[in-house]
Amino acid sequence: MPAIQLHVSDMACGACAAAIETAIQATDPQAQVQADPASKQVTVITSCSAAAIQVAIATAGYHPELR
């Protein structure tokens, strides 16, 4: 599975990263997620579509942009 790369400009801290990781894993419990607030990058290896991952992050209150 290819990795999905997203930029989340409003991910400001570790708590934000944890919330994003939790939201993605609620959509796909098997997803491998790396959220880095310093670079504002989220990398996801998942069987879900990029759109589904974006919706999960948006539902958590953040604004993801596909890279």
Rank of each mutant, 00 (worst) to 15 (best):
A52M: 00
R67L: 05
S9C: 02
M1N: 09
C48D: 13
Q5F: 05
R67Y: 14
Y62W: 07
A26P: 00
I24A: 01
A56E: 12
Q41Y: 11
A52Y: 01
A56V: 09
Q32C: 00
L66N: 14
P29F: 12
I20R: 10
A12D: 08
A3Y: 08
A26K: 12
A12M: 08
E65L: 11
Q34F: 00
I20P: 12
H7C: 02
A23Y: 14
Q34W: 00
V33L: 02
C13T: 12
A38M: 01
S47H: 11
S49Q: 04
Y62L: 13
L6M: 05
A23V: 03
A19R: 15
P2V: 14
V44C: 02
A12P: 02
G61K: 12
A31C: 05
A3L: 10
C16L: 10
A31S: 05
V42A: 07
L6K: 06
T27K: 02
I20C: 09
I45T: 06
C48V: 02
C48N: 08
A23K: 05
A60D: 09
Y62D: 15
A17I: 12
S9G: 07
H63A: 10
T43W: 09
T46V: 04
I45N: 08
Q30Y: 00
D36A: 10
Q34Y: 00
A15G: 15
H63V: 04
I20M: 08
M1L: 05
E21K: 06
C13I: 08
A35K: 00
G61A: 04
L66Y: 14
A38N: 03
V8Q: 11
M1H: 11
Q5N: 14
E65C: 09
A35Y: 03
Q5Y: 11
Q25T: 06
Q54M: 12
A12K: 13
V44S: 09
T22A: 07
T22P: 03
A18T: 11
A60Q: 07
H7W: 06
A17N: 13
D36I: 03
V44R: 04
K40P: 02
V33S: 06
S9L: 01
T43S: 07
H7T: 07
P64L: 06
T27W: 02
D10G: 06
M11G: 10
I45D: 10
I53F: 01
A60M: 03
Q25F: 02
D10P: 07
D28W: 15
I4T: 06
Q54E: 15
Q32W: 06
A31Q: 04
P37V: 05
T46I: 08
Q54F: 08
A17W: 15
M11N: 14
I24H: 04
I45K: 07
A19S: 15
A58S: 15
A19N: 15
